[in-house]
Design a protein around this nucleic acid. Structure first.
Lengths: 161, 161
DNA sequence: GGCATATATTTGCCTTGACAAATATATGCC
DNA sequence: GGCATATATTTGTCAAGGCAAATATATGCC
C-alpha cells in the first residue's frame, strides 16, 4: 500500500488540482508581504522600525499615555515581548517610561517629541502608502467589504472558542 | 511643546476615534487566531502538529514526492527552517527522506503511510472544520469574494516591488 | 493592621524563522 | 576533462514572541 510508482522520481502533481491556496495560507502570505512592504518603506525613509515597533508607536500615539500592559494588549503581543520592545524604542528615543502616579507597579508610556514627529511625518505616511497600494486593485466598496469580511471572520474565530 | 496635561494620568483616548483596526493589524489578528484555532483543533484530536508542520503535510500530500526546496517554496518558509521541520516530522514518523535518484544533492520527501493516514483522517478534517467555522457568517458569495480580494491584495503587494 | 489574591513589569528559557556560511553536487562552457 | 557558476541541504547565529517564574505593589476582606 505504500510506495509504488518508482519510475517517476517527482511525479507530476495530481493534474487538475488547481492549487488555490487555502484561506490560512493566503492570510499567511498577505500578512507577511504587507509586513515586509511596510518595513521596506520605513527603511527607505530612513526610519529604523520593525513592524511590531511600528504598531507600538501607532497605538501609543492613538491611545495617549498608557501602561505597558494596555499597550501589549492593543498590539496583541505578550507582556515580556513588550518590555523588550520598549527597551529598544526607548533607546531609539521614540518613547519614554515614566512611573505611574497612582499605581507604583505600573508605567506610563509616552511618545517623545521625536516619536510623535516620526509617527506623524514618516511612519503613518509609509503605512498609508503601502496599504493604499496593496488595495489599489480593489474598488472602494471592495475595500470596505474586505475589511468587513475579515472582521467577521475574526469574530467567528473568537466566539467559537 | 512636549508634555502638558499632567492632571490626567491616563487621558481618555481622543474621543470619537473609532479604533477600526488597520488592514495590517486585522490580518495579523485573523491569521494568528486561525493558526491558534487549527493547532487547538489538531491537538484536541490527539495530533501533535504545529501549523507549519500541518502546512508541510498538506503540501507534501498535494504535491507527491518533492525535494525539500520545493516544499519550502510551497510552504513559504526558509530552507533552513524546512530542514529542522523535516527533522521533527521524520521523528514523528509522518514522512521520510530518500535520496533523489538523479540528483545526489537533493532529497525526495514522501509521506509515510502514517503521514497519509493522519492527513486524510484527521488533519484535513480539522482544518476544514476551522476554516468552515471561521467563515460561517459569510455567504458563499462573500467567501469567494474574500478569497478573491486577498489574492488581489497579495498580487498588488508582490508586483509593486 | 494582616493576609490572601490579583495585577504590572521584568527576566530566563524555549521554539521558530530569517539569513549567511559551509559542503556536496550539478551544469554549461572552454 | 577542467573550471566557473548555480543549486540542494545542513548548520550556526540572531531576533522575536510565548510562557513561566520572580519581584513589587495593589486591593479586598477579616
Amino acid at each position: 500500500m505504500s510506495g509504488m510508482n518508482f519510475n517517476e522520481p517527482f511525479p507530476i502533481p495530481p493534474a487538475g488540482a488547481s492549487h488555490l491556496p487555502s484561506l490560512g495560507m493566503l492570510l499567511n502570505m498577505v500578512r507577511s508581504e504587507m509586513v515586509r512592504a511596510i518595513e521596506a518603506e520605513l527603511s527607505s525613509q530612513g526610519v529604523d522600525l520593525s513592524f511590531t515597533q511600528f504598531l507600538i508607536l501607532k497605538k501609543a500615539q492613538l491611545l495617549g499615555a498608557v501602561s505597558a500592559t494596555e499597550l501589549a494588549r492593543a498590539v496583541e503581543i505578550d507582556g515580556g515581548a513588550m518590555t523588550r520592545q520598549l527597551d529598544q524604542l526607548e533607546r531609539k528615543g521614540y518613547l519614554r517610561r515614566t512611573p505611574h502616579a497612582q499605581d507604583r507597579r505600573a508605567l506610563r508610556i509616552e511618545l517623545t517629541d521625536t516619536g510623535h514627529a516620526v509617527w506623524k511625518d514618516t511612519a503613518s505616511v509609509c503605512s498609508q502608502r503601502v496599504i493604499t497600494a496593496s488595495q489599489r486593485s480593489l474598488s472602494e466598496l471592495e475595500q470596505t467589504q474586505l475589511h468587513d469580511y475579515l472582521t467577521r471572520v475574526l469574530n467567528a474565530l473568537r466566539d467559537k472558542h
